[in-house]
Write a protein that binds this DNA or RNA. Structure first.
Lengths: 194, 194
DNA sequence: GTCAAATACTAGGACATCCTACTATTGATG
DNA sequence: CATCAATAGTAGGATGTCCTAGTATTTGAC
């Protein structure tokens, strides 16, 4: 889900109703399309009497596609480091923590993912010697995840690569970046993120 | 991946460096956070001298989180229909097609997903009697996927539910919806989507 | 016409996500 | 102090996504 390139998760675009479409393409994984699939879907929505929902559908579908695009870019940059985005996020969380260690549960809460996803990610990070599991000093139910030196080094190198190859130029205008952060901030607030 | 609620894919938020954070929460899957994790990550980025990338990081992370939120909502609405969002998208693509049938490859191209993902989705849709595989009339390599009557009915009902419960009110302002679609349109164009 | 390259699809594997269920420990209640 | 609900973590299963590899068919070049 995110799966392979990760992704995981579902994330394609809802539909592209381009009328015909010749056998034009050539690139197996992601051929090009002639028209805008989302605009086409929006037209279909309206044509079927769903005008009130067509804009929302377009927005949600756009988010899905944007996720897919960025996830692919990020995973491509991280591949040489042999970590997925999910595992990278765990590393950065530990990197920014004061003691370089956090309980599993805290990681799940901060990243907003299921506990079992944290178990999965930490299993792999630990196998790669990037983090270590330690018993929590006062709560024997809990497990601390500590950033290992190799993990710290990788976090820095991977971040440098991501900054250079993705975050510094997202393919959006400065205004677009601000719009995205601000608008999704609304959504996140409504979802109870903060 | 999608997993379950689906999701799949990777999609959490990059990091939340809230200083301490009491054991406040209570909701296992997705506890609430006191501060905004993305804003906090952005501060950390700047504090580490990565100012040039901090806005882009925030935008990409916001997209990831928005995807996670919407995917969870959509999957929750679709669950009673026993279809995932990925499979719903295939159904809608067929629903909008003139003949109610498309080659596998076309489906992958329109949805911008890997061919093997289409095989997977169609396998399940076919098992549920929502679509049928037919030999392509002129190209014996290809397989046509035809929308079955049950699939057509489900597409309509599921769309009505999604329109009511997600697309009509996305949790964004009208302006936000437009900003999202327009801004991500930029990104998609740059990515060669159309 | 024949043969190589491209294309369509499937099979199997690696990851990531979620969910349910289960164990161990803590904390609150009587 | 004893019991029970809540919490932390893991195990196993379902889905979805991608990649690589392999088969069958079509298309294009010579």
């Amino acid at each position: 889900m995110t799966g392979g390139r990760p992704g995981c998760g579902p994330a394609p675009t809802i539909a592209a109703m381009a009328p015909a479409r010749k056998p034009t393409t050539r690139q197996p994984p992601t051929p090009r399309l002639a028209s805008d699939p989302i605009a086409e879907a929006q037209r279909q929505w309206s044509a079927h009497g769903w005008e009130g929902a067509s804009d929302g559908m377009a927005a949600v579908t756009s988010i899905m596609r944007a996720h897919q695009i960025y996830l692919a870019r990020v995973e491509a940059v991280l591949r040489p480091f042999d970590v997925s985005f999910a595992r990278y996020e765990v590393l950065m969380l530990l990197y920014f923590s004061k003691r370089g260690a956090l309980p599993m549960r805290t990681i799940g809460s901060r990243l907003q993912v299921h506990q079992t996803s944290v178990t999965n990610a930490v299993d792999r990070l630990e196998a790669a010697r990037l983090v270590r599991r330690l018993p929590h000093p006062t709560d024997r139910r809990a497990t601390l995840v500590e950033l290992a030196p190799a993990g710290r080094g990788l976090a820095e190198k991977a971040t440098a690569a991501l900054n250079d190859e993705v975050f510094t130029d997202t393919g959006l205008s400065a205004r677009g970046v601000n719009d995205i952060v601000r608008t999704i901030g609304q959504l996140r607030r409504g979802a109870g993120d903060f």
